[in-house]
Design a protein around this nucleic acid. Structure first.
Lengths: 228, 228
DNA sequence: CGCGGCTTTGATGTTCATCAAGTAAAGTGG
DNA sequence: CCACTTTACTTGATGAACATCAAAGCCGCG
């Protein structure tokens, strides 16, 4: 199979890498690998060596930390077209976070030294790439701070709206993660995640059936979110 | 005064900007401005336009958010040789955080489009710059997560050790910020900051006299920090 | 000298985690 | 495919951690 073509026609590529010549694109093409992961599979282990840049084409993944003797902590959820991995990529030798698939997914692995070479030689690419990856880190910081200024109902509202607006673009969707994972993402106990969801159901703000969520009163949910 | 020379001989410069030619350095020199701020002065207002890159030469500054109707929230404290401002610089049009001096300080303002031009034209500079600024963001994320896994005593221990190890390099120092600002930095109430400090004093871990801190039992403090 | 902000301590109440206990769902091996 | 085990989910009760309220002393500053 002609890998260069595979890469050039990739519908995702244009969104990810701007300002590249055909020749540069070909360089990426021969230094990339597309891999598939099943829901639940671990993609990157914390502490392993960094030598590839990951680009999510399809599915959802979570970035998380697992410290010994502590429960896991989810840092963020990435959706298709997102760059995976924060800036640690450029300031560390080893992976700072683990990454796992929370839906079946397709990921493009590009050799990091190729990316670095392109940054070195193509200034416009460098600037654009920098801009994109920095937006990711910036948003993680903002979200972290935001969440901790809110109490439990506000945090659950955040999560419900996050999936509705940011991931599924619908008021009706199926949660890709467990209650426990929600708890790890917004720093609360699993029991309280369930409790607040039940409250929202009783207050007729949402419908729940297992993993399936339907937002019945969006306005009210947004009010809970903004009022903390 | 010959600004190029001023810049070339600047003791801070070499640490900040690597891989620049004399000519490129001169470009920075004529597009920079050194400014002084008194303790308490606001350096950057949230929401203002970004057109300069800030480099802290002397003193300490705080990065913070002030949302209406909420108390301020401090994101990080920067020390000399630190790049100020997170990645928002490259992904936003407007400042995302405010910056204020918590000690008298000297800051070098460099036109952002000059930095961008250098990133575009000098690949090695780009990579090095990228690495440095990403380390800052990375550390902010880590610290945020870290702090929220700890309870109050662990957070105060963090702050005391932060100033001891990271800023003053001494077990004896004068706190540059108020109890209220400590509270805003590690997300707790001002009263509890004071309470925990008093506890530490009673337990003979530290001595306090106004803003002055002396760490008497470093080992114990570090244990409190790691055990959360 | 008096006012406002910072600091301190105590008392009170709320939010939340933890514990316990039970049900449902989803893997696993014979 | 069914018994078995484990993991996810759910609700209630309890207690701990923490914020908030209140009141008073302190300090710097106009």
């Amino acid at each position: 199979m002609d890998q260069e073509n595979t890469c050039k026609v990739c519908v995702y590529r244009s969104r990810a890498f701007k300002n590249l010549t055909d020749k540069e694109m070909a360089l990426i093409a021969i230094n990339r690998e597309e891999r598939h992961f099943k829901k639940g599979e671990i993609i990157v282990e914390e502490g392993s060596k960094i030598d590839e840049f990951l680009y999510l084409q399809k599915g959802l993944v979570k970035l998380y930390n697992k410290e010994p003797h502590r429960k896991e902590h989810i840092i963020s959820i990435a959706k298709p077209l997102d760059f995976i991995g924060l800036l640690g990529l450029f300031s560390n030798q080893k992976q700072v976070h683990s990454i796992a698939a929370i839906e079946d997914c397709t990921i493009c692995f590009v050799k990091l030294n190729v990316i670095k070479e392109l940054i070195r030689t193509n200034g416009n690419f460098a600037l654009d790439f920098f801009e994109k990856i920095s937006a990711v880190s910036d948003s993680v910081i903002k979200t972290r701070i935001n969440i901790h200024t809110k109490q439990l109902r506000g945090r659950i509202a955040y999560i419900l709206l996050f999936f509705a607006h940011h991931i599924y673009n619908s008021k009706s969707y199926s949660l890709p993660i467990s209650r426990k994972e929600i708890a790890e993402l917004i720093d609360m106990s699993t029991e309280n995640v369930i409790r607040v969801l039940s409250e929202f159901r009783k207050d007729d703000i949402i419908e729940i059936e297992g993993k399936h969520i339907l937002i019945k009163n969006l306005q009210r949910l947004e009010k809970i979110y903004t009022n903390g």
